[in-house]
């Protein structure tokens, strides 16, 4: 079966069997290995990507369901100028340790911030209920969001 979609703004055309998950297609067919596989049951959120702006667990999302969709992955965040504001805030706040969950957090937060540009801490924490970080204990991730919001509103 043919899958046509756009990933990080680029058109892609792939031949699939039909049963593949979006995660496998991104990692194996498109070599976008920034999206991580942590559980394959939609519990850890490491595989979160955006499908038409919605944050989905790509490990339990059928690739063919993304036909004609716009997909954004962690590889699409940094522009030519370097890390984007959220990524920078993560770096500066110490929101990254082992880094395996980080792409999923960034994508979930990108979806959240798109809809709620000034989320309070409770909203951030609620929105992160589908993302597990085993290293940081979350405090510096929450701080990174606050830092990003503050810097953006200062711009």
């Amino acid at each position: 079966m043919e899958l046509i979609f756009r990933v990080n703004g680029r058109s892609e055309r792939l031949e699939l069997q039909g049963h593949e998950t979006l995660l496998d297609v991104l990692r194996n067919d498109l070599c976008l290995t920034g999206t991580k596989d942590g559980c394959r049951e939609g519990e850890c959120g490491a595989c979160t990507v955006l499908v038409n702006g919605r944050a989905v667990d790509s490990c339990i999302y059928a690739a063919m369901a993304a036909y004609d969709a716009d997909i954004e992955t962690v590889e699409g965040l940094a522009k030519n100028a370097g890390l984007n504001s959220l990524q920078n805030a993560f770096a500066e706040s110490g929101g990254v340790q082992c880094g395996f969950c980080t792409p999923g957090f960034l994508m979930m937060l990108t979806a959240l911030l798109d809809k709620y540009p000034h989320p309070d801490r409770d909203l951030v924490r609620d929105a992160l209920s589908g993302n597990i970080c085993r290293c940081t204990g979350y405090a510096q991730i929450e701080e990174a969001v606050a830092r990003h919001v503050e810097q953006r509103s200062g711009e």
Binding site: T33, G34, E75, Q87, A91, G99, P103
Partner: peptide, 20 residues
Amino acid sequence: VRTDAAGKLTGEARYTVDYD
């Protein structure tokens, strides 16, 4: 900032599972 932060934030960092 930790020296490996940028790689981990952009998806460039290579974990074993990413080996190909």
